[in-house]
Design a protein around this nucleic acid. Structure first.
Lengths: 179, 179
DNA sequence: GAGTTCATGTAACCCGTTACATGATTCA
DNA sequence: TGAATCATGTAACGGGTTACATGAACTC
C-alpha cells in the first residue's frame, strides 16, 4: 500500500506525467521506495479510477501523448490518513546476510571479495547522499518546512553508514583469520 | 531466489519437517528472511521436484503425517553456487521514511508518537539480539566455524542500533521545534 | 523516410500474504 | 467422543519484475 502514497506525495510536490514521475523517483523518493515506469503507469490508472488524481485538462489524452496528473482533494485526504496510521516496520529481508549464513555451512570461497564489492557500492551511495545533503541542506539556514525532508535524508546517510561500518569490520574479521 | 536457499541452509544444519522448519525460521534465519509455513511448504515441494531435497524414507508420506526432509548433493551444490554469486544489495523500501516524506507535504499530526512507537519496537529487537549474542557467542571462546554466524548476528545488532540512534535523534529534532 | 528518442502502455511471471481446509494425534 | 493441537496443505490476491508493444515527435 505504499506506492500509491509515494506517487500522491510526488504529485503534490509537482504535477507530472508518468515518465516524468519515474525520473523524479529515480533521484528522490526512489531512494527508499524505488519503482519502474510500468508500475507507476499501473498505479496512476488505479488512482485515477479511485478519484484520487486526474489528468490536467490542457493535455489531450492519446496513446504516446503526454498526460499530466494532479492530486484531487480526495487524494490528499487519503494521503493524510495514511501518514497518521500506525504501521509496524517491515521485516528485514537481506540476501547478503543469508548468504553469509549459508557460507557458514557450505564454505565461503570469494565471500570476502563480495563483501568488498558491497562495501564499494554502499560507499558510493553514501557519497551520493552526502552530496545531496550539501546541495539541498546547507548548514547555515535550513527552512523549518525542510526539517522532515532532511531527517529522511539523514536516515539514508545513517543507514549507509551502518553498512559501510559493518562491512568494514566483517572484512577485517575474515581477513584476520583463515578464509 | 532467496527462500529456497534459506531452506537448504536450514536443512543442512538439521533435517526437518515443514512445520519444524517454520519454527526454526522464527528464531534464527527468519530474523533476516522471514517466512510462513505456507510459503515453506510450497518451496519444499519445488525443491523436491527439482531433486535438491528428498523425504527421509523412514517417514511415510500422507496428509497430516509428518514428513522429514534432507538435502541431496545436488541441493548442496546449488547452495554453494548461490553463495559465490555476485548479487547487488536489494534496494531499500521503507514505508516509515516514505511517510515522513509525505508528512513534509501534508502535515504530521501524531508522527512523533509513531516514531516513539517504532523506537520501542527496535529497542526490543536489539535487546533480543543482544541476548542471543550473550547466550550463543560468549566472549571467552568462540569457535572458528561460528565466526560467520556471529558476523550475521552483528549485522542485526548494528542495524537495530542504527534505527534506535536515528529515531532518537529524529524525535529530539521534532520535539525541539514546532510540529 | 529511417532511425532515435520520448512517452504510454500490455502481458506474464514470481513471490509474499491472507484465509481457509483437512487429516492425524493426544488427552480430558 | 469431543476438543485441542500437530501437521500438511489449497486457493486467491496483490505488488514487484521483466519483456515486449505501439504511437508520436524530432533529427539526419
Amino acid at each position: 500500500m505504499s506506492l500509491p502514497h509515494a506517487i500522491l506525495t510526488a504529485l503534490l510536490e509537482k504535477p507530472s506525467s508518468g515518465l516524468e514521475l519515474t525520473r523524479r523517483f529515480d533521484r528522490s523518493i526512489g531512494y527508499f521506495w524505488p519503482s519502474t515506469h510500468q508500475q507507476i503507469y499501473r498505479e496512476l490508472g488505479k488512482l485515477e479510477k479511485a478519484g484520487h488524481i486526474r489528468v490536467l485538462p490542457t493535455a489531450q489524452p492519446a496513446r504516446g501523448q503526454r498526460k499530466e496528473y494532479e492530486v484531487l482533494p480526495a487524494g490528499r485526504e487519503a494521503l493524510m490518513a495514511w501518514v497518521s496510521l500506525a504501521e509496524d516496520p517491515r521485516p528485514v529481508r537481506d540476501p547478503l546476510l543469508l548468504r553469509m549464513r549459508a557460507a557458514a555451512v557450505v564454505g565461503a570461497p570469494g565471500l570476502a571479495g563480495e563483501l568488498r564489492r558491497h562495501l564499494a557500492l554502499h560507499r558510493a551511495q553514501l557519497a551520493e547522499y552526502l552530496e545531496i545533503e550539501e546541495r539541498d541542506f546547507p548548514p547555515e539556514r535550513t527552512a523549518e518546512e525542510d526539517r522532515l525532508r532532511r531527517l529522511v535524508l539523514r536516515g539514508g546517510i545513517d543507514l549507509e553508514t551502518f553498512w559501510t561500518g559493518w562491512l568494514t569490520r566483517a572484512i577485517d574479521d575474515l581477513d584476520g583469520s583463515g578464509s
